[in-house]
């Protein structure tokens, strides 16, 4: 059995081919999700963790509490009968395994107490946001538009066309259609600029949660492979960014609208705790 490893903001344990991931947050004796995490974001992180050591990972079953479209877009994992199973637990943890389910224990010593009031407000806010009646009153990302770039957004799939292009582009400056010769950008980079938006300065999609979080922070990142991107910082690690900070790009919940959650890439600062 491995010790608890902190990975993309979560805690991971392994025992043979059984792997366990849990939120680092606790409320009393209960393991609870961070402010922008759910089973889907944790499953994506665990698959990515396993992908470092194992190539050709596949899944045979995915717990219904996980968004299947999102996990496949974010990890590009295949589904076949000999693959891993993903099973969510009743608290903020899940397992990925082959064969029999393993027995793991939460490492409470490695976990932190979450602010109960804030946690409750955020949970209510997500519930309100996810109501199908919460619809756009103007400009927004439609479901179709969100889906079109899902793979590029979640797994940083880029094009290799006289250099790496991300986000993907249709034609180059010569009017030539850019080929579908995909490469994946390494999900890490350096902060080149940042801002913290008050609730008044953020898009209305964030209007319910931004006041509870005390604003939201966005960083511009130059990835190690070259392309730049803008990303929110994860919601449950309140760090004030600096230009030059190192970051990892992870998947978290962005916001909910029209009854479904938009997932996206967010940044975690890695050179400071």
């Amino acid at each position: 059995m491995t010790d608890n490893t902190m990975w993309q903001g979560y805690l991971i344990q392994s025992n043979g081919d059984n792997h366990f991931i849990n939120s680092p947050w606790k409320l009393g004796d209960e393991c609870v999700f961070g402010y922008d995490s759910d089973y889907t974001t944790m499953a994506i992180s665990l698959i990515r963790y396993l992908s470092i050591e194992k190539s050709n990972l596949s899944l045979s079953s995915i717990d219904e509490r996980i968004n299947q479209q999102t996990i496949i877009a974010a990890t590009q994992i295949e589904v076949n009968p000999s693959g891993y199973k993903i099973k969510c637990n009743d608290d903020a943890s899940l397992q990925v395994y082959i064969g029999d389910e393993g027995v793991f224990h939460l490492a409470f010593d490695s976990m932190q107490d979450i602010d109960e009031e804030k946690y409750s407000k955020i949970a209510n806010a997500w519930q309100n946001e996810s109501n199908i009646m919460n619809t756009s009153q103007g400009a927004y990302i439609s479901g179709q538009q969100y889906d079109e770039s899902l793979e590029s957004r979640l797994s940083l799939v880029a094009q290799n066309h006289q250099g790496i292009i991300w986000p993907q582009r249709q034609m180059d400056s010569e009017g030539t259609n850019i080929s579908q010769s995909y490469v994946k950008i390494e999900p890490s980079g350096t902060v080149t600029s940042w801002t913290k938006l008050s609730a008044a300065g953020a898009p209305s999609e964030f209007a319910i949660r931004a006041p509870i979080l005390g604003g939201i922070s966005t960083v511009m990142v130059e990835t190690n492979d070259g392309p730049n991107g803008v990303f929110l910082l994860v919601d449950d690690i309140p760090t004030s960014p600096k230009i030059g900070d190192s970051v990892d790009i992870v998947v978290r919940m962005l916001y909910a609208q029209e009854g479904f959650i938009r997932y996206g890439a967010k940044a975690i600062i890695t050179n400071r705790s």
Binding site: A139, L197, G201, A202, P203, S204, V230, F231
Partner: peptide, 24 residues
């Protein structure tokens, strides 16, 4: 509704999902 419209002319697909309107 005003808040939904602010930022309509930025890059909605990438910047808006990163929490940005024009102040950002």
């Amino acid at each position: 509704r005003k808040r939904f419209w602010l930022g309509v002319s930025g890059d909605t697909e990438w910047e808006r999902l990163a929490g940005l309107t024009f102040p950002g």
